[in-house]
Simulated assay, not measured.
Amino acid sequence: MSLQKQRDLARIAAVGSVVALIALCLAWELVLAPLRTGGSTLALKALPLLLPLRGLIHGRRYTYQWTSMFILLWWAEGLMRVWSDAGLSRWLAGGEVVLATICFVAVSYYAKWTRPSVLAAEAK
């Protein structure tokens, strides 16, 4: 597989996992297993995920770099709720951990594959 195809796949995985994570967070806290009946303000945790979305879609390397650290907040929150919650909420937290892990791996590889040294070697 060519390096360009690998970068495209990493970008699709990163954008897809962030969009899926936004949808999961909203569905989880508003409908599926909210902390309070009728929805929870914890659904607002999905809003910061909108910050990197434009840069991820446009393939901006700097956005991929800081998103690799940013996404760890959702990974840690999901891991804590896997450990502390029960029932459906535990499964949803597991999904959050999986999506955050996919995002972390995808943005890390995209940032690696778009290094100036890699791009220069590819141009030769």
Results as ranks from 00 to 15, higher is better:
K5G: 01
Q6F: 08
R7W: 04
D8V: 01
L9S: 13
R11D: 02
I12A: 15
A13D: 07
A13Y: 10
A14G: 09
V15F: 10
V15Y: 08
G16I: 08
V18N: 07
V18W: 05
V19G: 03
A20T: 08
L21P: 10
L24A: 08
C25Y: 00
C25K: 07
C25E: 13
C25P: 00
E29P: 00
L30V: 08
L32F: 13
L32G: 05
A33W: 03
P34A: 07
R36T: 15
G38W: 10
G39N: 06
S40E: 08
T41S: 12
T41K: 04
L42T: 12
A43N: 03
L44V: 12
L44Y: 14
K45C: 10
K45H: 15
K45I: 15
A46N: 08
L47E: 06
P48I: 04
P48H: 07
L50S: 09
L50H: 09
L50W: 10
L51G: 02
L51P: 06
L51R: 00
P52F: 13
G55D: 07
L56W: 13
L56K: 05
L56I: 09
I57A: 12
I57D: 04
H58P: 00
H58R: 14
G59R: 02
G59N: 03
G59P: 07
R60N: 12
R61F: 05
Y62M: 10
Q65A: 14
T67L: 13
F70S: 08
F70P: 08
I71P: 03
W74T: 09
W75G: 12
G78S: 09
V82K: 00
D85Y: 06
D85N: 12
S89P: 08
S89E: 12
R90G: 10
W91G: 14
W91A: 15
L92Y: 06
L92C: 11
G94P: 03
G94Q: 02
G94Y: 01
G94W: 00
G95V: 03
G95Y: 01
E96L: 09
E96W: 00
V97F: 01
V98G: 02
T101C: 05
I102T: 10
C103M: 07
C103Y: 04
C103D: 09
F104Q: 04
F104I: 02
V105W: 10
A106C: 11
A106V: 10
V107K: 02
Y109K: 09
Y110Q: 02
Y110G: 02
Y110D: 01
Y110W: 12
K112R: 15
K112N: 11
W113M: 07
T114Q: 06
R115C: 02
R115W: 06
R115S: 13
S117C: 05
V118G: 06
L119V: 14
A121R: 14
A121M: 14
E122W: 12
E122A: 15
E122L: 14
A123C: 00
A123G: 04
K124W: 09
